[in-house]
Amino acid sequence: MINKSDDILLVSQVVLFNSHKAFEQLVNKYQSAVRRFFLNLTFGNDSLSDDLAQETFIKVYLHLQSFKGTAGFSTWLFRVAYNVYYDYIRSSKVNRETGYEEVGAHVESERPNSDFQMDVYESMKVLKPDERTAVTLFYMEDHPVEKISKIMNCPTGTVKSHLSRGREKLAEYFKNTGYEYNFG
């Protein structure tokens, strides 16, 4: 397991010595988190989330010199991932109001998803992209609000608003689907 200081060391090796081995270690370490992030944003679309994750890592490699190291590598990585997701939404002509409908319109999964996992993806569809991003990062990845605000490049108050609205919409969804009875 490599920690944050190892991240900086690996990044410096990539920037200074163009070390592909060091970059592969970074990809190895973060591939799961980044792909899981995109899976939640695309409602379990395996091929799309892998494409977006791949694009994210390539952009990270190409712009690694602009990483200042002040916010931590994982924050910066998720910021790039968030931008890639928004570029995808824009290029697909999907606006913020209707985005979730079109992104989830052609979901095809190569990995077998459990019924519960499908429930999670279904619940995500009631959220707007910003709310979905905030909920995913906060509840699924356990990132604090401050870190999410850096990733989404917005004030912490805005993140809290996204989370609050997300909670309200999820409550409504759970109520309508009867999911409230399964809360432990």
Binding site: N28, Q31, S32, R35, R36, L39, F116, Q117, V120, S123, Y139, M140, E141, D142, R167, E168, L170, A171, E172, F174, K175, Y179, E180, N182, F183, G184
Partner: peptide, 23 residues
């Protein structure tokens, strides 16, 4: 509008989160 506690949301997502995706 319905309300839901933070703990209830966490309980829901706890089962799905941190699933390690094989490389």
């Amino acid at each position: 509008m319905s309300t839901i506690s933070d703990k209830e949301i966490r309980n829901f997502f706890d089962k799905a989160k941190k699933e390690q995706i094989p490389d």
